[in-house]
Amino acid sequence: MVGTGLRWGEISALQVRDITLRGQHKVLRVQRAWKRQEDNTFLLGKPKTKKSRRTVVLSPALVEIIERNIAGKKAEDFVFVTAWNNPWRHGNFYNRRWLPAVALAQKEGLTKKPRPHDLRHTHVSWLIAANVPLPAIQARLGHESITTTVDRYGHLVQRLDDEVAAAVEAAMTGERPALRAVS
């Protein structure tokens, strides 16, 4: 979740057929998501919005994780499953995996009690720290509107006064601006 920015209902609904690991770009396609019903059960259906149906490029580290999780599986099998090869249900994952992991992290000094959705926010903060443009973040997260992205994460965008001044100077003088190294 932290490596893709996907919502819980999206990542837990990924099937092997949603993954492409051949070619230049290794990607996953968000095609479906688990939806909570009024009776508190979950149903597999369409993602949250039209723009939530998207393609997400995978880093080499994520490719390794996904390769381990899809080895020997059929196209319709879920990528992330329990030890019994069943799809993860939110409550089951939360109680059996998430809470013990948080408790262990708290013993090691974590002072907060994060939720799984906080991994999505962490993902975005990494992208913003790397100066990834907000429209690219909007597309990666599947936000229907850039306003959602700006309202939720705009406060994290560092002031880019030096970059703005350099761009204006370059436009006025015809010189190319010096690019800041991003680490």
Rank of each mutant, 00 (worst) to 15 (best):
D151F: 08
V2F: 10
P100Q: 09
A61Y: 06
L44P: 06
Q158R: 13
G174K: 10
W126P: 05
R54S: 02
L156Y: 06
Q15Y: 04
L160Y: 07
M172H: 06
P135V: 01
D39Y: 02
R159L: 11
N85E: 12
A181P: 04
H143Y: 04
W84C: 08
K73P: 01
M1F: 02
H117D: 05
V27T: 15
E10G: 09
V2G: 15
V57S: 11
I11H: 01
H25D: 13
R97H: 15
Q106Y: 08
A75E: 12
I65M: 06
R96L: 12
V124N: 01
N40L: 09
D151G: 08
A181G: 10
L141F: 04
L160T: 06
G154Y: 00
R159Q: 12
R17D: 14
L110P: 07
L6F: 02
R180D: 11
R7M: 14
S59F: 09
I146D: 15
W88I: 10
E10L: 13
G9M: 10
R176F: 10
R120K: 12
I70R: 00
M172Q: 10
R68Y: 06
V63L: 07
D118P: 03
L119D: 07
N85F: 05
I66R: 01
A166P: 09
D77F: 00
T111W: 02
P135Y: 03
F42Y: 14
F93S: 08
L141A: 04
K74E: 14
G142S: 03
T122H: 13
A165K: 13
R152M: 15
A129W: 07
V182H: 11
K51Q: 15
A136G: 07
W126L: 14
L99I: 13
D77E: 07
A105D: 11
D39C: 00
A105P: 00
A71E: 14
A171F: 02
L104E: 11
R96D: 12
R32F: 08
R32H: 07
A181I: 05
M172T: 08
